[in-house]
Design a protein around this nucleic acid. Structure first.
Lengths: 343, 343
DNA sequence: TTGTACGCGTTATCAG
DNA sequence: CTGATAACGCGTACAA
């Protein structure tokens, strides 16, 4: 005879208490019944479950989280999401996390220290069991890591990836930035290229520096001139690249250490009448779909975003499990090479 | 004299109760003091705040949320995040939400109905105050909207964007898919193109159908032959496009209704020796960076992902505010055109 | 001015 | 087998 009540109640979230009063039993009985406790008789279990189903009862997760002191949620902070590398990494993170029944809260720092710090402050108060972070540009440049230290001080598990800070003592997942660019540059030189220039719009980032270093040392090892075009934050990279290539017509190869300048360089070189890849070769940083976009006309150093994402979650869940063990290993996920270099 | 205690306690989350015992006052006094209640004396306020600062006290958000019955969090479910359109929309959503002190929990449906349904089930239990959803491919194809109905039944605010379901009665934000493709196609025809083909890998989606319809009706209005290459789910779109263009050498224009096939078609056409844009023209769907990638060689219909994201949040927050008012308006955000068509 | 008591929804312990 | 009680951490009406 609780039909009317039922109909009225239905839409809004049903609680244990409501079930209890409707069934004339105690709240704890209902809770145990729904959790299949052996303490409860089969008949009452059935009654409880039936009504719970009818009223579409769903336990409130906030309450469960508060009680258990675990949110089963990972806080992810990335500089932006439009960069396909981060998109892929997030994809990997989400997949692996959800496989392990973890939700993720994503926050974008927009490369800003403040926003990064605020996000940490919000999430570090019970909302998440741990953090996965790629450091904002501003934090990297200013070397301000106070907000990360506060995570560590609070014993909250933390994993950094790609953009990491050396002086923060936590687990890290990176790619072999130096190695892969060194190797790619060497390959170009072996192909007979003499005027290899590096294009970059991330010179100020940790990864940018490592990649530049790879290029630089490869060039120097072969006694070739180092030429770096730093497009950092330039709004109109098209024009700058065009100007450079016109002023340096001898250029016969480009190493791009980000996901954009390589493709742009390719297009412009073709517009300027260069034959690719016969007398002009490009190596770029890329991601899964890059290959489609450039149609094998350039070689790409492919960052395995999804794998990197997987790994970060793996490390984080380990830390969450063995609360004590603040492991701070650094895992390197080597880059792929896609698209054959010409000989 | 609580210094030793302090040092021991510091790392782990400080609670009101701990502050209270340390200060020999009641929990509520501490709470009020921290919230600057006029009931509390200035001196005690000072004492409380001082210790709170020392111990780095941060109120537990879960508890606050449970108490207030509001999570200040938006649940966002998108099919994937690698598609730059969704990445941009998410960017817009995150920015606008965070401006209004809302967090977002992002879940990826991976185009699967099950995952979408599970995500809703998890989040609809107190974790979020409302949903923003772009419908998974599978849900659209099977027309299964039961999980969405359950959101509505539970009175949880819901906004759909881009991929929407007509039979779900909620607010929606879409682009002018039909219109913009009709217009683009007409433009190509006006430019003298006679053999315009449509490339698509999203024929089965609501947006895909609308866009195809725009193309089709524009062609028919000019008594031209409709030609559609459906690359839906094909792994190797490169090859298919190449084959098509070789078998149909008369083709003088391509309309691509997704963010990939247009760029691929452009590259392949150039490889096949077509002069772009003199005797071959491409219109594609795109996003902010597309223009850079294709270097003005094709025109793009640009979906304003960020604006769309903004709008969804705006509508959702409205709904959250006037709980009663289940507004179900549909907002259309018109596409931009970038890159001049040649005449 | 401060403290007490209760509620948010859940679970766990301990009586009955 | 069932129920009362306490607890998670916070906020607040009410009492002192």
């Amino acid at each position: 005879m609780y039909l009317a009540y039922t109909l009225f109640l239905y839409p809004i979230m049903t609680t244990l208490k409501e079930l209890a009063t409707l069934l004339n039993v105690s709240v704890s009985t209902v809770s145990k019944a729904l959790n299949d406790s052996p303490e409860i008789g089969e008949d009452t279990k059935a009654r409880v479950k039936k009504l719970a189903k009818e009223l579409n009862y769903q336990p409130n997760r906030l309450a469960q989280q508060l009680k258990s002191n675990a949110s089963k949620t990972i806080g992810v902070i990335v500089p932006n999401i439009v960069n396909p590398f981060f998109a892929e990494a997030l994809h990997g993170i989400e997949n692996y996390a959800s496989k392990h029944q973890y939700d993720i809260i994503i926050t974008l720092s927009n490369e800003s220290f403040d926003k990064e710090a605020r996000a940490i402050n919000m999430l570090a108060r019970g909302s998440v069991d741990g953090f996965i972070i790629a450091v904002a540009r501003e934090s990297q440049i200013t070397k301000n890591s106070s907000h990360f230290q506060s995570i560590l001080t609070n014993q909250i598990p933390l994993v950094m990836f790609d953009r990491v800070m050396e002086n923060v003592n936590c687990a890290k997942v990176v790619v072999d930035d130096y190695q892969s660019v060194y190797k790619a540059t060497t390959q170009l030189i072996d192909n007979g290229r003499k005027h290899v220039v590096l294009f970059s719009n991330i010179a100020d980032l940790s990864v940018g520096k490592l990649r530049s270093k790879g290029y630089q040392e490869a060039m120097e090892a072969h006694h070739l001139n180092v030429a770096i075009l730093d497009l950092n934050q330039e709004p109109d990279i098209d024009t700058h690249i065009k100007n450079y290539l016109q002023q340096h017509p001898e250029t016969d190869a480009v190493v791009s250490i980000d996901h954009l300048t390589g493709i742009v360089a390719l297009n412009i070189a073709q517009m300027l009448g260069k034959k690719v890849p016969q007398d002009f070769e490009v190596v770029g940083f890329g991601f899964t779909e890059t290959q489609l976009l450039v149609n094998s006309q350039i070689a790409v150093i492919r960052q395995k975003g999804e794998d990197i994402g997987h790994k970060t979650v793996e490390l984080l869940l380990e830390q969450i499990a063995n609360k004590s063990n603040v492991a701070s290993e650094t895992v390197v996920i080597p880059n792929d090479f896609k698209g054959a270099f010409t000989g």
